[in-house]
Write a protein that binds this DNA or RNA. Structure first.
Lengths: 201, 201
DNA sequence: TATATAATACCGACCGGTCGTTATGTTATA
DNA sequence: TATAACATAACGACCGGTCGGTATTATATA
């Protein structure tokens, strides 16, 4: 195996294991030694590839938030109409909210550090505001195509994003407290009913 | 000053300062020494009154969640109709979401630890489920009094709670990212429009 | 092609410091 | 005087990060 191969191999091994640890135990409770042990590398390798534990975390959330944005964009752009697009989104989120504790845990870690650590905050807020914009754009499209009534796109977008975040939050806190996938689906249905265009008006 | 007086005085001093620290810096980043220093007491006093740092945190969130429940109950019970009750709630939450970083910070800390620490989880989930029940009961009342349409009370309650949580989350992460008070108000308005009884039907 | 040199990738013991907790001593109240 | 209510200092575990050294691979030289 050549240098670049084994380099990327240990790098990704560290990142993968760090993701798991951060998600399941939290950033603070996860030690560098622990990540290294589970990844099968030494501390030397860790600090050869990364400046600090913090940079690993930042790199993780960065790639993760970018991935999410791409996913959101593709779902939005592929949808025929806005209501079906929203339902598509709900369908995509459902398995995540129901089974993927890893993703939920990472989200939680992200949120709890974003409001205290300046670097994490700036790495989080920018993509998050773009998510708001994606949602708002979707609503605008819905108004333009006639499927949605005359609602405020920005407010409605923020409502949708807040609802998603809140559902993620509750699902990660209390996974068995409700059928979260169903709650998600019905919530979207309910909101859609509220913002869809009423013809009789 | 007699013994019981000064005892409760230092006790509450510790609890107050712990609240501030946990909220602004987070549980892990807050040291026992820091709490003691700001509260003007010694470590000896701290461990004379509390078993551990964790028990302080648990006591804090317990009283805090109980307070919240009382507040929710009172707002709900004092409202004339359900729609006005929801708008009242939004009005109550608005100053919190706009200005009170302390409360938001504590919430964040609560959430991030509830999914990892078993004691925190059990202390959190029980009241949270009661909140869901309060919201669901409010919706049921609305259907009964004829102000709301035939929506699912449980799902709608969870929707409302998720939305609130999500708004809290975003407001604490990105306080200047939006006029969160306005978003809250408009979101409630929008949902109300969706679930209010339509007479023409 | 064989060998020397250099650069890359990695190892693991160790350091400085922090943190929660405890053991012991001191003061105020009953 | 006895006990409750504190203060002080120290302990021991742990953790992020460093550093001298070692393989492993790449490159230059002959």
């Amino acid at each position: 195996m050549n240098n670049t191969q084994r380099s990327t191999q240990t790098r990704t091994a560290i990142l993968d294991e760090a993701t798991r640890c951060f998600a399941s135990e939290g950033y603070d409770a996860t030690g560098v030694a622990e990540i290294c042990e589970k990844a099968g590398v030494s501390k030397g390798a860790f600090y050869y590839h990364f400046d600090s534990k913090e940079t690993v975390f930042l790199e993780l959330i960065d790639s993760w938030l970018k991935n999410l944005e791409v996913t959101l964009q593709s779902v939005v752009s592929q949808s025929e109409t806005v209501p079906t697009g929203l339902l598509d989104m709900a369908g995509r989120l459902q398995p995540v909210i129901e089974h993927n504790q890893e993703i939920l845990g990472l989200f939680l870690e992200l949120w709890s550090h974003a409001s205290r650590n300046e670097k994490v905050r700036s790495a989080t807020i920018a993509p998050y505001r773009r998510y708001q914009e994606i949602f708002a754009g979707l609503v605008r499209r819905g108004i333009a195509e006639g499927t949605l009534g005359e609602v405020d796109p920005i407010i409605t977008g923020q409502l949708l994003l807040s609802l998603s975040s809140g559902l993620f939050l509750q699902a990660s806190m209390d996974p068995t407290g409700a059928d979260w996938g169903k709650v998600l689906h019905n919530s979207i249905d309910l909101i859609l009913k509220g913002i869809e265009r009423k013809d009789e008006k």
